[in-house]
Lab assay of single mutants.
Amino acid sequence: MPSETPQAEVGPTGCPHRSGPHSAKGSLEKGSPEDKEAKEPLWIRPDAPSRCTWQLGRPASESPHHHTAPAKSPKILPDILKKIGDTPMVRINKIGKKFGLKCELLAKCEFFNAGGSVKDRISLRMIEDAERDGTLKPGDTIIEPTSGNTGIGLALAAAVRGYRCIIVMPEKMSSEKVDVLRALGAEIVRTPTNARFDSPESHVGVAWRLKNEIPNSHILDQYRNASNPLAHYDTTADEILQQCDGKLDMLVASVGTGGTITGIARKLKEKCPGCRIIGVDPEGSILAEPEELNQTEQTTYEVEGIGYDFIPTVLDRTVVDKWFKSNDEEAFTFARMLIAQEGLLCGGSAGSTVAVAVKAAQELQEGQRCVVILPDSVRNYMTKFLSDRWMLQKGFLKEEDLTEKKPWWWHLRVQELGLSAPLTVLPTITCGHTIEILREKGFDQAPVVDEAGVILGMVTLGNMLSSLLAGKVQPSDQVGKVIYKQFKQIRLTDTLGRLSHILEMDHFALVV
């Protein structure tokens, strides 16, 4: 994948999101292997301009796509893939009243899908469409860049269908997702969380590099694949309309690839034109409109599966009536509230959605109805927002919020430890010299600072030695090549209790 991002070429006709291997024109390309080798690009942008032909009021008969309808489940399912879809609609009884809503608040519980998330729908649909058009064949390999849930859905379907599955996901995604993927037989590649989507090191860039190296491999490409919004247009939206008897006044959905909100909203605009569509985008993402909503100094966020630093091709923002931004604290607070007060075992993005819903639905009156999409299960986040310690460490809970008995030293300040200034190293000294210094002084790690004293990161003896043994660096290389740029900081005025929580999850903390 090139470091400079080429513009994806656009073909003359058809839909841009065809499933299957992508040609340089962004659509299915038939021909000899030699032709494909000559024409197939190194990668295709996940934010390529959409060429979708959908228009409100256009006859369904003019759609270029294969459409399906929700099917009634048999008493005995032939395999677990038949437990994807037909998820329950559940009334939220307490939270709406707590925040003064007059309307009825309903939750579409997508964590009841077989793999635990709304992404099971698009995973199965992308595979079925690729099999139907002859792209996927027995023994082929599926590769997908994902925040985890699409990966789980694909790995689940691949396990049943017999495909090899490789999932490329950023490091910030939970260990629970990784464990589930491994249990399903998927191979996992992790990428830096802070890598831009168009960087060769991003999950998108690495996935395309693997595709170019592995024979008979395919990126189904949830960011561009029409099967993504079509899955929701054909099934999720129809289920909502049936469950609500066609009567709903507002739908609120958090947005990642945009397939969920695009597919549902398009069908609702056709069948229930008075329904307002509300999009939820986390602070630090750029999906919301108008652009002024996205202006923030924050560039990272903890909530998973929603928000991006690019506009995915499948996201149709014209069908969203209003956007709201959400933050991590309210997302996790509301997710825990949904679990504790409503018994809905949902993930953090569901918290984002409901946090926005109780604001947006203030305009609705008694007798009206708001539906929220709860995308995934708490299963993926047992060591994250479900953990009091994690919430404390991230600053989303305060010590006084917890009532468990603490040891005698818990409320003492870090400054009472009488710490001395640490050994520091410059980023320009060599790895070999740094190892000598650390061994001589008896230290395992040291902060790396520039000549102005600005902290650049941390270097550890173990990481340097393993990097040297693996051949990633040489003793003569500058130590700046092996620094940890993500590390926890703590102030002298913070409590030892807070430091204790940090050290339970990290090997060190830097006192500043």
Rank of each mutant, 00 (worst) to 15 (best):
E4P: 09
E4G: 09
E4R: 07
P6R: 01
Q7S: 04
Q7N: 15
E9P: 13
E9A: 13
V10G: 11
V10E: 07
P12W: 08
P16C: 01
S19L: 06
G20Q: 15
P21Q: 01
H22K: 01
S27F: 06
G31V: 13
P33Q: 11
D35V: 10
K36R: 13
K36C: 12
E37A: 06
K39P: 15
P41R: 06
L42K: 04
L42S: 03
I44T: 09
I44C: 04
R45T: 04
P46T: 01
A48S: 10
A48V: 10
C52V: 03
Q55N: 13
P59C: 14
E62M: 13
S63L: 04
H65V: 04
H66L: 09
H66P: 07
H66D: 15
T68D: 15
A69Y: 14
P70H: 08
S73W: 10
K75D: 01
K75M: 14
I76S: 09
L77I: 05
L77H: 04
L77T: 01
D79F: 15
D79P: 01
I80P: 03
I80G: 10
T87I: 10
P88H: 11
V90P: 01
I92Q: 01
K94S: 12
G96R: 13
K97V: 07
K98C: 06
F99C: 09
G100P: 01
G100S: 05
K102G: 01
K102R: 14
E104R: 03
E104G: 09
L106D: 01
L106F: 12
K108S: 04
C109G: 04
N113M: 06
N113H: 10
A114C: 04
V118R: 04
D120G: 14
R121D: 04
I122P: 01
I122Q: 01
I127C: 04
E128N: 11
A130I: 01
R132F: 08
T135C: 05
L136D: 01
P138G: 09
P138M: 05
P138K: 14
G139H: 11
G139D: 01
G139N: 06
D140Y: 08
D140P: 01
T141M: 11
I142Y: 01
I143F: 04
E144H: 04
E144A: 01
S147L: 01
S147V: 01
T150S: 05
T150M: 04
G151F: 01
G153F: 05
L154P: 14
L154T: 01
L154V: 08
A155G: 08
A155I: 04
A157G: 10
A157M: 09
A159L: 06
V160W: 07
V160T: 01
V160G: 12
R161G: 11
Y163G: 01
R164L: 07
C165F: 01
M169V: 06
M173C: 14
S175C: 08
S175G: 06
S175Y: 14
S175K: 08
V180M: 08
L181R: 01
R182N: 01
G185L: 01
A186C: 04
A186W: 01
E187A: 01
T193F: 07
N194R: 01
R196V: 04
R196S: 08
R196F: 09
D198C: 10
S199L: 08
S199F: 03
E201A: 03
S202E: 06
H203I: 01
H203G: 01
V206D: 01
W208A: 14
R209W: 08
R209I: 09
L210E: 01
N212A: 01
P215D: 12
S217L: 04
H218G: 01
I219C: 01
I219V: 08
L220G: 03
D221T: 06
D221H: 06
Q222F: 01
Y223M: 07
S227W: 03
S227V: 01
N228C: 06
Y233M: 01
Y233T: 01
T235D: 08
T235R: 01
T235H: 01
T235C: 12
T235I: 10
A237L: 01
A237G: 11
I240G: 01
L241I: 01
L241P: 01
Q242Y: 10
Q242W: 06
C244D: 01
C244G: 04
D245G: 14
D245R: 01
G246N: 01
G246I: 06
L248V: 13
M250S: 03
L251H: 10
A253R: 01
S254D: 01
S254V: 13
G256S: 04
T257S: 07
G258V: 01
G259I: 01
T262A: 12
T262D: 03
G263F: 03
G263M: 01
G263P: 04
R266A: 13
R266T: 10
K267S: 04
K267Q: 14
K269V: 01
K271R: 11
P273R: 08
P273W: 11
G274I: 09
G274L: 07
G274P: 05
C275V: 14
R276C: 09
R276T: 15
